[in-house]
Design a protein around this nucleic acid. Structure first.
Lengths: 329, 329
DNA sequence: CCTAGCACTTTTTTCATTTAAGTGCTAAAT
DNA sequence: ATTTAGCACTTAAATGAAAAAAGTGCTAGG
């Protein structure tokens, strides 16, 4: 357990470093806590021995280590209440009664991304939790039609397909079969059921049944199993630790690719706000992911905010708490 | 008019510079054309006076100026026929009979982006050319429903809306009215017609008509007037002239934002392949946009490839020609 | 236990020097 | 009238030495 003074020093170093990314020396801290810089140096040495601080070179000031951030988040950070301005911006979105929940969430995370300069993500429910609810088709012209898929969690997608020598009747009949026989199936198992339950039936009365089956099969396998929305993709460029390092930027951008992100956002078991610092997450050792699950009615998902390790933890956690509250009621 | 030799020298400089971004000196060129470096220097001086070449500093080799690229594209460039490998990759996409045209285009431009390391864009027909064809609704639950909008050009979008105390009947009736009365209207005028032709009618028999009207109004104004697909957004980071300049990257990324891009892609009147070098385009003085309109049946749009000014003009133009051919037949 | 003080380390900045690449121009050669 | 050899000159990039800045660790005394 750290002493009161050590806590104070660590907190100050973390917060100063978050404000501006320069190693923190003993002098500034000594002024702050009214003791000599030598004393602070001794304490810093101790904090370094404990693995909470690091030096960038032998005679540099200290920067927080990953463990240092962890300790800060777990023990030192005080939640700020949101400032009025931020709150106002978000209220405008939340007050809009006409937006579907998923749009409210997406829009407010867009706002957060802009005000914080971090990347934000909304993930819908996982694929095996998304059950096929309904399929609809809208004919576009002779050969093309749009297939709309709705899941029980309210995830909607549409895809265009092209069919030759298949009548609209045949399509509608097939859709009817799908809706009757396999709605309720987890999306990622629909392909299978399509093959073993639908294909044999339509084989009997649809001439181009192979083609029709293939088209629907592809629509369902293309279905983005999980709804994904990434906002402020290139906000990372605003962060000094990245903007000076193109290679880092590239790897992070790749990890933020639409499909990629799913693998990289942690799966949480509970509903609390989680902070994954550096190597604790799957994206990059230099980023922190702060995320939480939300659940309102039958809609659920995860919202995440991704920034540098020196992100404004207190402010972000405050924001997410506020988001969660507002979503869930 | 340039002499034969000047053409040769300019061509060589442009092509060498495109291969690797270093100023080209007189010595390499002299070997290539069998005359002394002094002669080449004289010619280079002349080409510079004509505004086709530039120096990066008084004693540096030459790099092509914007006019130099222009001259190269207009007079010197020889179209390469596509290499077999590139062709094969694209054929796989084109051969897929089941993909709707717009998906074929999007997927093949994705392939091109990957193989060239340039950003690619597909724009659909312009908003006032997109006429509302059909509106459909799919109820999701008590309060939420999905509205699907289809235009005559085959542009489909869906949006979720939330309605309180509005019955499904009322919604369906309203949709029926829209389909009967204002389908055929350019998308960007639908808002108006909604207000003056639909609102008065539903005012009579829908209790929450204000709410219902607002919801539909928003759906239509949110409709992305022009279908936009941007692939390989951060391929720019692979280009040396950008990866060393974060500020440039940021401005280019901003110009490549979804909605922003529409303003920045030139409007062409004819169907030829157009090359917009540096200041000739609206994106950035350091990029070149090569684009062409396509039209097949009632689907039309523009495809564009965006890269550095030193992009591989011959290869890209070849690719676009090939794309156009394949799309239009 | 705290702190003044100092030797020491490392990075950053500055400046001078050298090297490499390439030019423009002159005068001779073709 | 062109072409070319040759050389003085320019600039950027690389190298290196020296000084300045920031900060540390440790010792010895309060």
């Amino acid at each position: 357990m750290l002493t009161e003074r050590q806590n104070k020093i660590l907190k100050s170093i973390v917060e100063r470093y978050i404000k501006s990314p320069n190693p923190v020396g003993s002098k500034v801290i000594s002024k702050e806590i009214n003791c000599s810089s030598a004393t602070v140096r001794n304490e810093m040495g101790e904090l370094e021995r404990l693995g909470l601080l690091e030096k960038t070179h032998t005679s540099s000031g200290r920067v927080p280590s990953e463990a240092g951030y962890r300790y800060y988040v777990d023990n030192l950070m005080e939640l700020k209440k949101m400032n009025a301005e931020d709150m106002l911006k978000l209220q405008i979105v939340f007050r809009n009664q006409q937006l579907a929940l998923s749009d409210v969430i997406t829009k407010s995370l867009q706002v957060i991304s802009d005000m914080m300069n971090y990347t934000t993500v909304v993930l819908g429910a996982k694929s095996h939790e998304n059950l096929l609810k309904q399929v609809e088709v809208i004919p576009i012209d002779e050969e093309n039609l749009t297939v709309i898929i709705v899941t029980d969690k309210g995830h909607v997608e549409h895809k265009n397909i092209k069919l030759q020598d298949v009548s609209l009747e045949e399509v509608r009949k097939t859709v009817g079969l799908i809706n009757n026989l396999i709605s309720g199936t987890p999306i990622d198992e629909v392909g299978n059921k399509l093959e073993f339950e639908i294909k044999p039936i339509i084989g009997n009365y649809v001439k181009q049944h192979e083609q029709l089956y293939n088209a629907f099969y592809n629509v369902f396998t293309d279905f983005t199993n999980q709804e994904i929305n990434i906002m402020g993709r290139h906000k990372m460029l605003e962060q000094p630790e990245f903007s000076s390092n193109i290679e880092k930027i590239k790897t992070v951008f790749n990890k933020l690719e639409d499909q990629e992100i799913i693998k990289n956002i942690e799966e949480d078991n509970d509903n609390n706000i989680k902070v994954y610092i550096g190597n604790e997450n799957n994206i990059d050792s230099d980023v922190t992911v702060i995320q939480t699950k939300f659940k309102k009615g039958n809609e659920e998902g995860t919202i995440a905010i991704i920034g540098p390790k020196r992100m404004e933890y207190d402010r972000v956690v405050g924001l997410l708490e506020y988001m969660k509250e507002n979503i869930e009621r």
